[in-house]
């Protein structure tokens, strides 16, 4: 027995055993159980099979629709802000023009080190509705009246997206910088000989060759955007915001599942989120040609 365990054949299975166990216990099992729960009505000590009724209720649940709209809105603006700009910053940072690259990279990465609590505390105070809060002072410079930032829809999302930009611009820029390292210098040299402009080089070399990195960043951004919860939880100091303007899909899952202990209904919410996230990502990958084998990357 001991001999078998030490053999070259058995060793790899011993090494991967922790993953197999953890995969079975903490991934497959909860995933299946949440699928089953989504067809049940779960009360303490009493479980009732109700078929697709949770999903039917979700179709008519206005608050859920609001949450989906909020999550999409947040995701959309984070994609707009957190892909093109970090890409351009990275291209600029990679050029010969910028000195002290290490210092700049370090500084732009700093916000990613903070926990969502610390970031939330800072921005909650900055965007407070008090006349003396920073953002209202900035408005006052331009002769504008103070705004109740976190009580109005548009300004609330401005605040949420600001937090996201502050935390993730540097990180995404570093992703793009890593991608840029893989583009051979000869391409740029050849383009220079042909008399290409800086913009032309960006448009025809940098942008297309950054595609694998862009797809990676896009994929994780879609997930992070749709699954956002804690940022809103921090800005409104809890899961409740005026007219649910800060409620996200995960926030609604938390409210139903944890706060109200309706595990079945909350499971249905989670699975709808999973379906949405997977669908968007498959479409995105398909449109980007990640599934076609012809393309040589």
């Amino acid at each position: 027995m001991k001999k078998l365990l030490y053999s070259q054949k058995a060793a790899p299975f011993v090494f991967v055993l922790p993953f197999i166990l953890s995969f079975a216990i903490f991934w497959i099992y909860p995933l299946i159980s949440t699928v089953i729960m989504s067809f049940q009505n779960i009360l303490p000590g009493q479980v009732e099979w109700i078929g697709t009724r949770n999903y039917e209720r979700l179709l008519k649940d206005r608050v859920f629709h609001q949450a989906i709209k909020n999550s999409f809105n947040y995701m959309f603006w984070t994609l707009v802000m957190l892909i093109p700009f970090p890409m351009m910053f990275a291209a600029l940072m990679d050029s010969r023009l910028v000195k002290a690259k290490g210092v700049f990279k370090g500084i732009l990465y700093l916000p990613a080190l903070t926990s969502v609590v610390v970031a939330g505390t800072i921005f909650r105070l900055m965007f407070s509705e008090l006349e003396g809060s920073q953002m209202n002072q900035v408005l006052a410079w331009f002769g504008m009246e103070p705004v109740k930032w976190l009580k109005v829809y548009t300004t609330s999302y401005f605040a949420l997206v600001t937090v996201a930009c502050w935390r993730w611009t540097g990180v995404n820029m570093l992703y793009f910088l890593a991608g840029l390292k893989n583009i051979p210098d000869e391409l740029y040299e050849a383009a220079e000989i042909d008399g290409a402009s800086s913009f032309g080089k960006f448009r025809h070399i940098t942008f297309p060759l950054l595609k694998p990195t862009s797809i990676y960043v896009l994929t994780i951004s879609i997930y992070a955007g749709l699954a956002m919860f804690l940022e809103s939880f921090m800005l409104w100091n809890g899961n409740d915001s005026p007219q649910n303007i800060g409620l996200t899909i995960v926030g609604y899952l938390y409210r139903r599942g944890i706060q109200r202990n309706q595990m079945g209904y909350a499971s249905a919410v989670g699975l709808v989120l999973l379906a949405i996230a997977l669908t968007i990502n498959v479409i995105q990958l398909f449109m980007n040609g990640s599934f076609s084998r012809k393309e040589d990357k």
Partner: peptide
């Protein structure tokens, strides 16, 4: 197959598993 499963676990956001895991 195992490596594929490793990657597959990344396709499900933790926020969805947290509820059944909490119950577990």
């Amino acid at each position: 197959l195992l490596f594929f499963l490793v990657i597959a676990t990344m396709m499900v956001p933790f926020e969805i598993l947290m509820l059944p895991l909490y119950k577990q």
